[in-house]
Structure formats: structure tokens, C-alpha cells
């Protein structure tokens, strides 16, 4: 059984077809990268998988269950978590409270109004452990909106991982980072996603080649190649469409 499976998925916005028949399979426990030039439809594909958009046609299954008609919250509850390309956090919440939202969701604490959030010891411990993992423990009481960019990305990652998802979708986790920050983030992602399924959109080829087991190349809404990193690097069509300019 595959973790993520798309068959003949299309997505149309008005008269323009952004996704034009995508078949994609991501195996359980695999780290899979989705690359492609700007405007190829990578983010749209992410939004389709995570339930933000519904496909115009075709089928999407997550862990063998059909998901293309489900709401984002249902998909999230099935163990699929995503991060956002444009940092999307809660401006009025502290770092600690932000991560706690994710941890509470994972613990199934939702409509609880008879006790304080601070009194849940198990939740608090998980939050502290996660903050330690992403090196934000010393920033716990800072407002999320006041963090520098790279720390916001780390926080985004921590919230995503707080759900303890089986399938993780990361949209450009190293965008806008310096080389060192990107390397740190890759190490972090590698460590924290061990044993889980990862689908990542990424522009930085060094990140893709060092992190991922397989790569799919999306061009003009279609996947033109899927394979191991060295196969992709040798593929003539890929080089022509994308890598020729991007990599060398």
C-alpha cells in the first residue's frame, strides 16, 4: 500500500488547467521530493493532497483511503500534516502556545472548557520536547509574529510535527534561508521525519539530492519523470525542461 497515491488528477481554475493529469505514488516511509520550474503547479498539487482544493477530476488516496472529497480537518485527523510555503502562523500567540495547539490536536483536546490549557501536564511536556528539538526552547514566550524568518520556519515545522503525522507535506521548508540555515533545517527534517512518509516541494537541488529517496519532476501540470536522484540527474527530458537552467 502506498502512502500517497494520485491517479489522473486534474485541477482547473476557470479556463486554465493547472494540473493536467498527474499520476504519483509515494511509498510508506519514503522521502519524496516534488521539483519543477516556477508555475508548474507544485503548490496546487500540495493543496489538492492536503484538502484545501478539490480536484476537478481524478482520485487521491492517503494510506489507501480515498481523500479527495474530504475537508482539510478530516485529512489532518487521518495523520496528514502540512507546512506552508508562506509562513502561516498565529500572530497573537507565543511560540509555546502555537506548538501547544498542534500538540493538543494530537492529544485530541478540542472542546475542553472546564480546565486550563496550562494544567495539562502531558501536553506541556510534549510541547517542551518539540521546542527543544527545533531549538526554540529559549524563545518559548516570544510572540510568533516577532520571530526572525528562519525561526518562524522552524516553528512552522514544529507545529506540523506536533500532530505526529504519518504523512508530512513540507512546502519549501528552506525557502529564504542562508546556506547554513538550510543545512540545519535539512538535518532537522531528516531527524524528525525518520520512519515517516515525507513529500517535500523544494527549489534547492542540494537539499533535494541530500534529503530524498525519490524525486518527481512536475512541468506544466504533468509529471515528466520519477526516479532516484541520480536517475533524475541523467534524464534528458528533465535536463531540457528544468535542470539545464536550474542546476548547472
Amino acid at each position: 500500500m502506498s502512502a500517497i497515491s494520485l491517479s489522473a488528477v486534474t485541477k482547473r481554475f476557470g479556463s486554465s488547467e493547472i494540473i493536467r493529469g498527474v499520476d504519483l505514488t509515494v511509498n510508506v516511509g519514503e522521502r519524496h521530493a516534488l521539483i519543477g520550474p516556477n508555475g508548474a503547479g507544485k503548490s496546487t498539487l500540495f493543496n489538492l493532497i492536503s484538502g484545501q482544493f478539490r480536484p476537478t477530476s481524478g482520485q487521491i488516496s492517503l494510506n489507501g483511503r480515498r481523500s479527495d472529497r474530504e475537508s482539510p480537518e478530516t485529512i489532518a485527523r487521518r495523520g496528514v500534516a502540512r507546512s506552508f510555503q508562506i509562513t502561516s502562523l498565529f500572530a497573537r500567540l507565543t511560540v509555546f502556545d502555537t506548538v501547544r495547539l498542534g500538540v493538543m490536536a494530537n492529544h485530541g483536546v478540542r472542546f475542553c472548557f472546564w480546565r486550563t490549557a496550562a494544567s495539562q501536564r502531558a501536553v506541556t511536556n510534549d510541547v517542551l520536547a518539540l521546542l527543544e528539538d527545533v531549538n526554540l526552547l529559549h524563545r518559548a514566550s516570544v510572540l510568533a509574529g516577532e520571530l526572525p524568518y528562519s525561526e518562524q520556519r522552524a516553528l512552522e515545522l514544529a507545529v506540523t510535527l506536533a500532530l505526529r503525522p504519518e504523512i508530512i507535506l513540507l512546502d519549501e521548508p528552506t525557502a529564504g534561508m542562508s546556506v547554513e540555515e538550510a543545512a540545519q533545517t535539512v538535518a532537522l527534517v531528516r531527524r524528525l521525519t525518520a520512519g515517516r512518509t515525507l513529500l517535500v516541494v523544494e527549489h534547492d537541488m542540494d537539499v533535494v539530492f541530500s534529503l530524498c529517496d525519490r524525486i518527481s519532476v512536475l512541468v506544466h501540470g504533468q509529471i515528466i519523470a520519477t526516479g532516484a536522484p541520480d536517475e533524475i540527474a541523467k534524464d534528458g527530458r528533465v535536463n531540457e525542461a528544468y535542470l539545464g537552467k536550474g542546476l548547472h
Binding site: E73, R82, F90, A117
Partner: peptide, 30 residues
Amino acid sequence: FFAKTPLGQIAFALGDNERRLQFLGYRTHA
């Protein structure tokens, strides 16, 4: 007291970013 409860915290986050909350698995309409 409500502001301190988990539901109060979730409601607070909802005012900031409802969409993100949905992707954490919360039913924001409820």
C-alpha cells in the same frame, strides 16, 4: 477562565488564522 482553557486558546488562534487551524485538524465552524 474561558480565555485560559484549551477551547479559549483555540478560539484565540482562530481569530489569527482560521485556515491554519483547519490544517491542524480543528473543526473551526464548531
